[in-house]
Amino acid sequence: MSSTVAGHFHDHRQQSRANTLGLWIFLATEVLFFGALFAAYLIYRVLYPQAFETAARETEIAIGTLNTALLLTSSASVAMAVKTARLGQRRATMVLLGVTLALGLGFLAAKGFEYHSDLTKHLWPGSADFPLDPPQTRIFWALYWIMTGIHAVHVTAGLGLWAVILTMIARRSFPLESSDKVEIAGLYWHLVDLVWIFLWPILYLVGRS
């Protein structure tokens, strides 16, 4: 049973406090990792407001909004899974994690479809026949591809994590109530959702009025 107290910790409370603090510090680094991109977006939005609005009108707002709904719901299902895991309800936790996985895969599928339609509209800044006029729109789209791309990588990593935890719960390889694996993975997933909460308004809702 791998989740008993590790050798160098006195007791379980100290170990889970260490795990939570370690994860929250990692989340701070993730905030700054995406933060550098938001800083670049902020500067260019201040410099070229018109170009960013014309560029943002081309984004697929329907898929973006669907993805927001999917991620918010998956955040809720993860919160429920954390509660049931702490109460030791193995079956409920597995169901809820399954729902989370489904929502996440839905997000990626919608994202893939959106990328496909973006590419057919030549909205790739590197391509010669980029349809939009002022060259600064290419900067918006460069930021769009980098931001949503890196976010998608984080979503995929999160889904991988959930899949591993789900199989471990299924094989009962760790005591559900005394381990904080589900809670730690949950914190990471909520951050991925938090980043999308900010990505959605600045990439999709700009220039709609």
Partner: peptide, 12 residues
């Protein structure tokens, strides 16, 4: 990938 965020020709 040609995603020029700092490319001066595009206004970066």
């Amino acid at each position: 990938f040609g995603l020029g965020v700092f490319n001066p020709d595009l206004g970066g």
